[in-house]
Amino acid sequence: MAAGAGTTRPRHGGRPGRQPTGRVALIAGGEEVSYAELETRAERLAKHLADHDIQAESLVGVALPRGIDAVVAVLAVLKAGGAYLPLDISYPAERLAYMLEDARPALLLSHSGVELPEWDGPVVYVDAT
């Protein structure tokens, strides 16, 4: 087999998994976010999660509409060392309440405008951080 056979080279010329920071990483709802901004936002939220004692093996509920904030939240949870519980906000409140009660996440990430079922755990509103 020839040298380099079976490998791919990213179009941007960098290492696989590393994107130029100025390029667009996400587009949602007319908003564009660069790789650098995505990294900055995820790091900022990850530090906030660490301040709430989220660490390895911590479970964090993510109840966000699909979009950039949801991607940032998932990346932040992973950067903090935790695992995320995806909570589809279109589910009935009873279903979400059951999922929260059953999984018992250490914290819930959401938006201030999202209607959540009653839950006695901490909630961090990503649109307020």
Score class of each variant (00 low, 15 high):
122 P>G: 14
12 H>K: 12
78 L>G: 06
3 A>Y: 13
47 K>C: 14
119 W>D: 02
82 G>C: 03
127 D>Q: 01
124 V>I: 14
39 E>F: 12
6 G>W: 11
36 A>I: 02
62 V>I: 06
9 R>P: 03
19 Q>W: 13
52 H>C: 11
68 I>G: 09
49 L>M: 04
43 E>Q: 10
37 E>K: 07
23 R>P: 01
76 A>N: 00
125 Y>F: 15
38 L>Q: 09
11 R>N: 08
108 L>C: 08
76 A>M: 03
117 P>T: 03
116 L>I: 04
124 V>K: 08
103 A>I: 03
80 A>K: 00
120 D>I: 05
41 R>L: 09
66 R>I: 04
14 G>C: 11
64 L>S: 07
96 L>Q: 07
86 P>V: 09
65 P>K: 05
46 A>I: 02
20 P>D: 11
64 L>I: 05
107 L>F: 03
66 R>C: 09
48 H>S: 05
13 G>R: 10
28 A>N: 10
32 E>C: 09
6 G>N: 09
100 L>C: 04
44 R>I: 10
128 A>K: 15
108 L>V: 01
37 E>Y: 06
19 Q>Y: 14
64 L>R: 05
24 V>L: 12
91 Y>V: 01
47 K>D: 15
97 A>H: 01
129 T>H: 12
36 A>D: 03
113 G>Y: 08
48 H>V: 08
65 P>V: 00
117 P>D: 08
97 A>T: 05
104 R>P: 04
108 L>N: 04
125 Y>G: 07
2 A>V: 12
33 V>R: 15
55 Q>E: 05
128 A>L: 13
35 Y>F: 14
58 S>P: 00
69 D>E: 12
49 L>Y: 06
32 E>T: 11
47 K>F: 13
31 E>R: 15
4 G>D: 04
84 Y>F: 12
22 G>I: 00
101 E>Q: 14
49 L>I: 00
84 Y>N: 02
6 G>F: 13
10 P>W: 09
115 E>W: 06
8 T>A: 15
128 A>W: 09
75 L>N: 02
128 A>E: 15
110 S>Q: 01
72 V>W: 06
127 D>E: 05
124 V>G: 07
118 E>Y: 12
85 L>W: 06
68 I>P: 04
29 G>F: 14
106 A>S: 11
118 E>S: 13
26 L>V: 12
32 E>N: 08
39 E>G: 09
116 L>C: 08
81 G>W: 06
112 S>N: 10
32 E>A: 15
38 L>M: 11
68 I>F: 12
81 G>M: 07
13 G>S: 01
47 K>A: 15
129 T>S: 12
44 R>N: 13
45 L>G: 02
49 L>A: 01
82 G>Y: 01
